[in-house]
Design a protein around this nucleic acid. Structure first.
Lengths: 222, 222, 222, 222
DNA sequence: TCCTAAGCGAGACGGTACGTCTTGTCTTCCA
DNA sequence: TGGAAGACAAGACGTACCGTCTCGCTTAGGA
């Protein structure tokens, strides 16, 4: 975003890391907006004045820290080296590639963090930004390659991307709130199965929906 | 929540209404969390002390006000008089009932309100509660009737309900943010088309997806 | 100064008094400008926020408190009911009236306070204001009555008033710093004797300087 | 104060001069205590850290700079080569020597500086130190020689010295504040005339007060 | 002439105080 | 008697300085 930022020296990097770590810990412990800057600096063992040398306010620190999550998420989710190839496979009925690149692994890794930030005690802008980010990924990695390959969309591409992103957020929230009883892989398979039909159909792609979802027989009440 | 509340006299009802109206206006004008109690009471022409006689804090007022929205939403969305009958129709390929009961009308009516509360400057708990509420509606009105009629679910019913709810939120957010170019009816048809395949399939219902979505040919940029 | 000030209720008067008392105590204990607002409110057992409800900053509190001293000083010093009569007496060689109205009594009463505020750790504007106030008193009570009675001034009246005021400040400072070995009355007599010659001469008044200063034989090194 | 100080570099001397000059400029422009160290170093084009290599704080710099003024004042005021001779002349009715050695010249030269430092926005310790310094000069140059020559003092010598010093400060402040309408020489003559009677009388010296003050006929408003 | 100790610029950092802003409680006064 | 008005305690906010420190770069003055 700001490529002209000064390079940070060792002390500065250390300070920022301390603050970020403190934030993550404290968000999990007591939520974000009951947190004061003093709480964070106390935990980080840093002067409050120093905090303001680095960040405008605690939102700034949060977004800065979220960037780390994003970078990790990009590695996990945005990795179709050749999205067009993936779409071609889909058209042949091979859905494997789609199932391998899963954001659920990433969410599982930062489960505590997402559980709080997506919850009622969370941060509105976090949810919105994650949804927006996922929609963008879906658009670049799936929607646009599919448009190039298929018979033309049946619905507005952005609507499809935001619906998929919203469904993801909904599923992830439910998963984290209800105790994460499924593995990330199971979640990925189930969510994909649920979305694939409508997604490929609305994008004008003819394919076969995978019939069974291996490892998801444990279906019951909840 | 508290059915044993004292009945309110005329003045008290008036005061509460003033406060609620002021809140809704101000949320639209400058978002929720930059709002102070003083702002609200100034607008409502009420003493700050009086505010605290009625509500614990501004969140309390918000939730109280949200109740009104909910009541309206229930009228719009939760109105399948006989959900089992609707599911039976679906199995015969008749999707009309599903398209008639639409929350998009409701959202359009309170567009300003939802636009702010679902946005980055919104309120985390609002989004979560709406999603939770929608998931509950979907579960009661669709998932459970379908389970009684079909061959058994292919996925956890709650996952389906939360995915549908999430997709709705995603679609609504996109709609409101991008200028609400489609009518509520178009939105309902498109969203239903996108979800129907995966939904009925995963619930173990055999049906035909409606091929064309009347009035949604305007597909393009955005 | 502000006759349109709101009347204060009991609580407000109490709070102000607590703050003023705390200020006076603390000025004596550790000087004025090393004092923080927090120090004052801690001592007064008052919230820091409350301080700012009453005073803009600690200077404001100081000047407000100084007003009390002034009022007391006016009672002591500005009391020639008929200054012209006094000047007439002076011309007859009767200096008694001048010796009775003495600010040294007042200074002795608030010795601790003046000692600090006039010292190096004091407040510049305090010294200046006291000097200005004394000059005004001298001008009104002595210079102008004398001008009406005498042969016309030999020097600018304001110069005379400020010289007298400055001499007073100098004498008071020396008195307080050197341990207040003389009584207020002795101080008044000595200071008057020293100034009277030049004062009446420069105002164009012919009189006799009192030869001996009763009770001031204790003259030595220091 | 510290005769064992290291000899300073060319660079060091340059830095100190830059800082002193910046201080003097800035005091005139915006007063002393609203000044921050940063302001001074910005003006002096010097790093803030460097400031602390030379001075403990801005008071230290001020006192250091005041030393220069003192040195100049000493040249102007403390120059009775033989004070006893001067007193002898006074006893013969020749007041010329007293009028030649005048601090008003010095004050006029640094008028801007004194105007600020003696004003309400000034520095308490500056006023006090000047008064103390003047009292010491008066004591050494006038009081003690006179005691050796006269019939013994009628008042405590220190009281006399401090009264004279205070009167000087008062007169100087008035002069600077009211626009310096008189020349330094006029000021010196007027102030001396006003003080001389009381001074010599209280020191036990018999002399004649000079009747007219040449060049001070312009007496009126102010 | 080179070398080395020092001055110096730059700026992070821990602190302290500032004056402002909210919040929720409590008191006073008025209708 | 109850609501309006607003004083009050509490405490977070973001800003401004302070004095200390560490880090390199430059420069003066003795070798």
């Amino acid at each position: 975003m700001k490529p002209d930022e000064k390079p940070l020296d060792r002390r500065q990097r250390r300070t920022r890391k301390l603050l970020r770590d403190a934030l993550l810990q404290l968000i999990v412990e007591k939520g974000f907006d009951t947190l004061s800057v003093q709480d964070i600096t106390d935990r980080a063992d840093v002067s409050r004045a120093t905090f303001y040398l680095h960040f405008r306010d605690k939102e700034d620190l949060l977004f800065n820290s979220m960037r780390e999550l994003y970078d990790d998420l990009v590695d996990k989710v945005g990795l179709f080296s050749d999205p067009h190839e993936v779409v071609a496979q889909i058209m042949d009925g091979n859905h494997d590639a789609c199932l391998q690149a899963s954001d659920f692994e990433h969410v599982a890794e930062y489960a505590n963090f997402y559980r709080v930030l997506l919850s009622e005690k969370g941060v509105a802008s976090f949810t919105v930004q994650v949804r927006r980010y996922l929609a963008q990924i879906f658009r670049e990695q799936i929607v646009e390659p599919a448009l190039a390959a298929g018979n033309g969309p049946r619905l507005p591409p952005d609507l499809i991307a935001h619906a998929l992103a919203g469904a993801h957020i909904g599923v992830i929230s439910w998963w984290l709130e209800s105790g994460a009883e499924f593995t990330p892989e199971q979640m990925a398979r189930m969510t994909y199965s649920l979305s694939a039909f409508g997604m490929w159909w609305s994008l004008g792609i003819e394919t076969q929906i995978p019939d069974a979802i291996p490892g998801t027989q444990a279906i019951g009440a909840s």
